[in-house]
């Protein structure tokens, strides 16, 4: 498998706080990679660094063999590297279909295209993706009127609408009704297999991430603590110590 995303020696400080310290990891194309770690270990900071939201202090980030360290957020997104937010973000005062339509890929849109209507294929794709996440019957509701879990599903569908190559998911099952979690895992796997979208997933629910990911990286206090298969991580004494708070 070729490497899609290469993170090398990335460091990020906020004043005296070291959020990420020389983190290196790589994401192979087509894989599902998990990112775990206790609260405050720097997982979301690393996401923000990868997508260009935080300028990093040291290190380099390469996507498809292209240096993206200094690119801005929308530029990186247009390359096909997309993230979802832990605090779900949708366009609250627009209905679900419009939320989906404006999420079409923007890479090749010229100045003129902003005056055009959305083509029929986009609408059909939007509706079929809404059906995929189970929001078809809610498609004309304002996105802000949906429940938190439904907004999370909508955000996921919007990300798929954008046809990313790599999707960074920040806690896709947090705040979701436990009975729906299996449905989400199954959808993530289908997206990975059928659409060929590579996934990098932050997840606190260990049973979810152990079943989903082929490879895990564990952060602790801003450093990369361990990497390996779910089995290796599960039995790694350093990971267990980090979670249980052993000094």
């Amino acid at each position: 498998m070729t490497t899609l995303l290469e993170v090398q020696g990335v460091s990020k400080r906020f004043g005296g706080i070291v959020a990420n310290e020389a983190i290196s990891l790589s994401v192979p194309e087509g894989g599902i990679i998990g990112l775990i770690g206790p609260n405050g270990s720097g997982k979301t900071t690393l996401f923000n660094a990868i997508v260009g939201y935080y300028p990093i202090d040291a290190g380099s980030i390469r996507f498809e063999d292209r240096e993206i360290t200094r690119l801005r957020v929308p530029q990186i997104a247009r390359l096909g590297l997309l993230r979802t937010f832990q605090q779900t973000r949708i366009y609250g005062r627009m209905d679900c279909v419009h939320n989906m339509l404006i999420s079409t890929p923007h890479a090749h849109q010229g100045l003129w295209s902003m005056l055009t209507h959305f083509p029929r294929e986009d609408r059909e794709k939007a509706e079929s993706l809404l059906e995929f996440v189970g929001l078809y019957s809610k498609r004309h509701l304002l996105a802000g009127d949906l429940s938190f879990g439904q907004q999370k599903l909508l955000e996921f569908a919007m990300a798929l609408m954008n046809e990313p190559k790599l999707l960074l998911l920040d806690e896709p099952t947090a705040g979701i009704n436990p009975t729906l979690i299996n449905g989400i895992i199954e959808r993530l796997q289908r997206v990975n297999e059928r659409l060929g979208i590579t996934l990098l997933v932050i997840e606190h629910n260990m049973s979810v991430i152990m079943n989903l990911a082929q490879e895990l990286h564990c952060l602790s206090r801003g450093r990369l603590l361990a990497s390996g298969t779910p089995e290796q991580i599960r039995t790694d004494q350093r990971v267990i110590d980090a979670y249980l708070g052993v000094q």
């Binding site: 939201y53 609250g92 404006i102 005056l115 954008n162």
Partner: peptide, 29 residues
């Protein structure tokens, strides 16, 4: 304009500009 892509895009910027940027919209344009 409001009925076209432009209208939906500026509505998206109104609702959440960070999200719009994260989705790759040409927000400045």
């Amino acid at each position: 304009l409001y009925q076209s892509r432009f209208g939906i895009a500026i509505n998206a910027i109104r609702d959440d500009e960070d999200k719009a940027e994260a989705m790759g919209l040409h927000t400045t344009r």
